[in-house]
Every structure is written in structure tokens, then in C-alpha cells.
């Protein structure tokens, strides 16, 4: 554990809590992509299967359980409790275009050809692109509420901080995982356009509105 990893995890946790609170307090999931949230739930489920096979630390187990529970709670809020507020007409990204290449890539580029390892790899590749339906939704409606942009900023920062963690671990522990590094860089790059808008607009008190 190093400071970058810890800040990354805190940022990730913060993002998930912001989203849950936003939906709960406003009693609405308007502007939130249910498809992205489904992809994140699939990500955590397939990655954290090792919860039952491999103990790392109390911290690790605790965070995994929190991420899984929060993710399923979010799905429940969007698809059950506040279903009437779900903006289905704007959540039109075709996720099969993500699932297919992610599946093929995880079968080809993995550390070991075993079920649990392929599912871990699948989750890493899937996480990298899971936000695309949400970003697509923002670009389609041309705007995002401030709280939604805070969520996106925290979620995007998390993998960016992980990159610093990987650089640190490479030099300090001679540890590196090319699959995680490659996917993590892709994941962070996908947020760059959003980061620019967030810094130039939201932080200056303006709405996140895309040019027409």
C-alpha cells in the first residue's frame, strides 16, 4: 500500500458514495446510465470472485465487499426503486460492442488460461470501457448535473491515481502487471475530454454543458 493507491481507492469509494447519495437524496436517477452501472456490477462480480479463494488483507476484503454491495444497491435503485426516473431513451449505447472485443481480448491476452484468471482479465478490460455508455449519454443530452460530474471526476481520478501507484510499485517493489497497466491507461485516457470540461467549467461554477 502506498499513498497513490490509497488515494485512488478513496477516490473510487467517494465516487460510488456520491452516486448512491445523489440518487437517494433526489429520488431520481435522471442522467445516470444504467448500462454503465450494469457493466461496473459485472466488473466487480467477476474480479472479486477471489474473495472466496484468496485472502489478501482485511482492508482488501472490506473494500471488495463495499464495492460489490454499493454496486448492486445502485443497480437496484436504477432498475427497481426509481425505475420511473431512469432516462432509458438517452441510454442507448450498444454494450455488445464493448462486451464482444473485451471477451475476445481477455481470451487472447491473459496471464494464465484458467477460468478465474480469464474472468479477472475480462473484468480489467471491461472496467476500462464501462464508463462509455455514461459518457455517451452525457454527450447525447449535451449536459450533466454538477453532482454527476463530481461523480465522473472522482471515478476517473481513481484509475489515474492507480497509474502513479503502478509507477511507484515498478520502482519500489519491482512489481508490475502489464494487463492492469495497459487497461488502466486506456481507462484514464477515455476520461481526458471530460476532465478538461470539468476543470474549465464545473470548477468555475458553470454547468457542464457541451457546445451545440
Amino acid at each position: 500500500m502506498n499513498i497513490f493507491r490509497l488515494l485512488g481507492d478513496v477516490s473510487h469509494l467517494l465516487a460510488i458514495i456520491i452516486l448512491l447519495l445523489k440518487i437517494w437524496k433526489t429520488r431520481s436517477c435522471a442522467g445516470i446510465s444504467g448500462k454503465s452501472q450494469l457493466l461496473f456490477a459485472l466488473t466487480y462480480t467477476t474480479r472479486y470472485l477471489d474473495l472466496v479463494t484468496n485472502f489478501v488483507s482485511v482492508y482488501n476484503t472490506f473494500m471488495k465487499v463495499v464495492f460489490l454491495a454499493a454496486s448492486y444497491a445502485t443497480i437496484w435503485l436504477i432498475y427497481m426503486k426509481f425505475r420511473a426516473t431512469y432516462d432509458q431513451n438517452h441510454d442507448t449505447f450498444r454494450i455488445e460492442f464493448l462486451l464482444l472485443p473485451v471477451t475476445i481480448l481477455s481470451l487472447v491476452a491473459n496471464h494464465e488460461f484458467t477460468l478465474i484468471e480469464i474472468l479477472w482479465t475480462w473484468s480489467i478490460y471491461l472496467e476500462a470501457v464501462a464508463i462509455l455508455p455514461q459518457l455517451f449519454m452525457v454527450s447525447k443530452t449535451g449536459e450533466a448535473e454538477s453532482i454527476t460530474s463530481h461523480y465522473l471526476f472522482a471515478l476517473g481520478s481513481y484509475r489515474g491515481l492507480y497509474i502513479l501507484n503502478w509507477i511507484y510499485r515498478y520502482y519500489m517493489e519491482s512489481y508490475y502487471d502489464l494487463i492492469a497497466i495497459f487497461a488502466g491507461i486506456l481507462q484514464t485516457v477515455l476520461y481526458c475530454d471530460f476532465f478538461y470540461l470539468y476543470i474549465t467549467k464545473v470548477l468555475r461554477g458553470q454547468r457542464l454543458q457541451l457546445p451545440a
Partner: peptide, 10 residues
């Protein structure tokens, strides 16, 4: 590439 089984990150 390092082998799996020991993923210690989230």
C-alpha cells in the same frame, strides 16, 4: 508477464 493468483489490488 507475471502470473495471476496474487492480485492484491482492487
Amino acid at each position: 508477464l507475471r502470473g495471476g493468483a496474487g492480485h492484491d489490488e482492487l
